[in-house]
């Protein structure tokens, strides 16, 4: 059964992948890192990814309708992923569903020329699902 590193290496095989990390979105700790990161610093990148993920997870506007007020605290975040694009790349953040308080989010950095956002989003979703749930 795959571990964190195997999952990140699999994500790195996606076209255009430059860096992949598994980040705890409450503390900003990188639980696993493969490849390169913006500015060459994976710890800074992880802290910034965690901030964005937390903001997205906590704003009721992004929750599915009817769940904003009632979601139990231990449930996975109501949102699935966050996508940021800029001139030269894409950042995909995918929350990892888990039957325990994991707080984990997958971060994938894709270069714009080779990256295929639709494919990466689909594959990252599958990987996040398999990571903990098997």
């Amino acid at each position: 059964m795959p571990g964190i590193d195997e999952c990140l290496l699999e994500a790195m095989r996606l076209p255009g992948a430059r860096g992949a990390a598994l980040v705890d979105w409450t503390s900003g700790l990188a639980l696993g890192v493969v490849g390169e990161f913006p500015g060459g610093d994976h710890e800074a990148a992880a802290a910034e990814v965690a901030e964005l993920a937390r903001l997205a997870a906590e704003q009721p506007a992004f929750a599915p309708e009817g769940t904003a007020d009632t979601g139990p605290a231990d449930a996975d975040p109501a949102i699935e992923d966050v996508i940021v694009s800029n001139r030269d790349g894409y950042h995909l953040l995918r929350f990892v569903p888990a039957p325990f308080d994991s707080g984990a989010v997958l971060h994938l950095w894709l270069g714009r020329p080779d990256g295929n956002l639709a494919l990466a989003r689909m594959r990252l979703g599958e990987m996040a699902g398999r990571l903990v749930l098997g």
């Binding site: 059964m1 571990g3 195997e6 639980l31 325990f100 994991s102 990571l131 903990v132 749930l133 098997g134």
Partner: peptide, 21 residues
């Protein structure tokens, strides 16, 4: 637990690192 197929390796690693810190 891994051998018994109860958990994935990544689940154990995530849980262990989080509880360690």
């Amino acid at each position: 637990l891994l051998a018994g197929g109860h958990l994935t390796r990544a689940a154990v690693q995530i849980c262990h690192l989080q509880t360690l810190y």
